[in-house]
Design a protein around this nucleic acid. Structure first.
Length: 464
RNA sequence: GGCGACAUAGCCAAGUGGUAAGGCAGAGGACUGCAAAUCCUUUAUCCCCGGUUCAAAUCCGGGUGUCGCCUCCA
């Protein structure tokens, strides 16, 4: 598999440190609110990466953190008159609800900053012992001047960065680019005891400490949004490599942004849609398919119209799946003929093409198009006369490929008795060529959200 | 100023040297009692100008336009 590595700005062949195993870390949310679909993009994309690597036989260990101490959480807690922990607990719970709707599996570890304070302190001590950090009156800063490779990920040199850097009031940095590893407690803020007195970790150090704790000193893949390249990931590299003297991450992956009217969607700009809001009008699976219909590094525009279009696409996939289930339920066992055998051979080519697309830096858009090609082939060549074995093979391939992307997952629901009765009544009317009654029942059901289709094997139904 | 991304049909979107995947929407046809679904047909001077090449959406140079990071941010 090839992965575009932000560090080298090239697609590189992916070779894990330990053959057959992948250690990956993805920056998770700061839990002070529902997350928006811009936040959702990396969650979905890297969930698919993880799933795909597992599909290809790797043993993957995946870590995604929750930032549960931070200025915004502290502010939110004050506003609502509750503790920081209560804010974090609530939005972690809500995160999992939305993530589940989006088809995102849980990571192997979801560490929280507040649970790893001792580990974080240990890492800071190591950095300090090795001479890459200094303390000023209860604050501990990373000394960027000591770390010669600072800027290697974002390709910035120190002078340029310093020109744009800002120093907050009250900070006592030696160098504008230095950043806090440990922040001295301010009145009313949560704090933990440390060798430097009461305080809390800086933002960047948590990811270094967590990756190290769960994955080791050198990890395979580190991922997040493009806006994290600088300063967050740059700082993570500096801290981690200062602490261990070893390379931190071998592959850096960054997803592009979601825009609204071509402007970046962000909480600070207020032009965002939360996943929770969207879930009231759309099945979140639509959002998942929307996200993976373009390459993860490209910017994408978001709008309700695009979601509607994606919704119709997804419908096509569901119809194909349910068709196959319907056919399988009624199919006969019989010999496969020459066309069937040709079809069976073709099935494997879709899998090959799918893998080829995914191997090319996770080209999910291309992978999805392979699934649509497969669907067309199925719709053209599989019907009520096909042998059960061939229908089953088509179905299995469809499920295999869609499962990697974790789309078209939902099971068909059952109908309530009254609707079953109406369908039977309509069938009776149709037999008697009472088209008026038959059409009336069909229209009524449509108004209730159920579409009927008459097929050679009886009536099929689906929800709108 | 530094670093970077993007520009392909009405809309979305793959494709990084051999002459344009896929989806949505639209039109026509087949099928159907009528539908629905499905299938078939149909819609692109690949932002502009040069250059390299037998051959460029794809490489190089120069434009134009849009956006992002450099400050909390996926």
């Amino acid at each position: 598999m090839k992965i575009y590595n932000t560090m080298t700005r090239k697609k590189e062949e992916f070779v894990p440190l330990v053959p057959g195993e992948v250690k990956m870390y993805s920056c998770g949310p700061t839990v002070y609110n529902y997350f928006h679909i811009g936040n959702a993009r990396p969650f979905i994309v890297f969930d698919i990466l993880r799933n795909y690597l597992e599909y290809r036989g790797y043993k993957v260990t995946f870590v995604q953190n929750f930032t549960d101490v931070d200025d915004k959480i502290i502010r939110k807690a004050k506003e609502e008159g509750i503790t920081e922990k209560e804010v974090a607990d609530k939005y972690i719970e809500e995160y999992f609800k939305d993530a589940e709707g989006l088809g995102i599996k849980k990571a192997d570890y979801h560490p929280r900053v507040t649970e790893l304070i001792p580990d974080i302190i240990e890492v800071i001590k190591k950095i300090q012992d090795r001479g890459f950090a200094y303390e000023v009156d209860g604050d501990v800063y990373f000394d960027t001047a000591k770390y010669k490779e600072y800027g290697k990920l974002s390709k910035q040199d120190m002078e340029e960065l310093e020109a744009g850097a800002r120093i907050e009031v009250g900070e006592q940095k030696k160098n504008p680019m230095d950043f806090a590893l440990w922040k001295k407690q301010k009145p009313g803020e949560p704090a933990w005891d440390s060798p430097w007195g009461l305080g809390r970790p800086g933002w960047h150090i948590e990811c270094s400490a967590m990756a190290m704790k769960y994955l080791g000193e050198t990890i395979d893949i580190h991922s997040g949004g493009q806006d994290l390249i600088f300063p967050h990931h740059e700082n993570e590299i500096a801290q981690s490599e200062a602490a261990t003297g070893k390379p931190f991450a071998r592959y850096w992956m960054h997803n592009g942004f979601i825009n609204v009217n071509n402007e970046k969607m962000s909480k600070s700009q207020g032009n965002f849609f939360t996943v929770r809001d969207i879930s009231e009008s759309y099945d979140l699976e639509v959002v998942r398919l929307f996200m993976i219909s373009s390459h993860y590094r490209s910017p994408i525009n978001f709008s309700k119209d695009l979601l509607d279009s994606t919704k119709n696409s997804l419908e096509r996939l569901y119809i194909a799946k349910n068709n196959l289930l319907h056919l399988m339920g009624n199919a006969e066992d019989k010999e496969e003929n020459e066309d069937d055998r040709a079809f069976r051979n073709r099935l494997l080519t879709y899998k090959d093409r799918f893998i080829e697309a995914m191997d090319d830096d996770l080209n999910t858009a291309d992978a999805v198009s392979v699934i649509f090609d497969l669907v067309r082939d199925i719709n053209s060549n599989i019907n009520e006369n096909s042998p059960k074995t061939i229908i089953k093979s088509a179905y299995d391939m469809f499920i295999e490929l869609t499962s990697v992307l974790r789309i078209v997952n939902k099971e068909e629901e059952s109908l309530d008795d009254e609707i079953e009765r109406l369908i039977e009544e309509r069938q009776k009317a149709r037999k008697e060529k009472n088209w008026a009654l038959a059409d009336k029942i069909r229209d009524d059901l449509k108004n209730r959200g159920i579409i009927l289709e008459d097929t050679p094997q009886g009536v099929k139904w689906r929800r709108i």
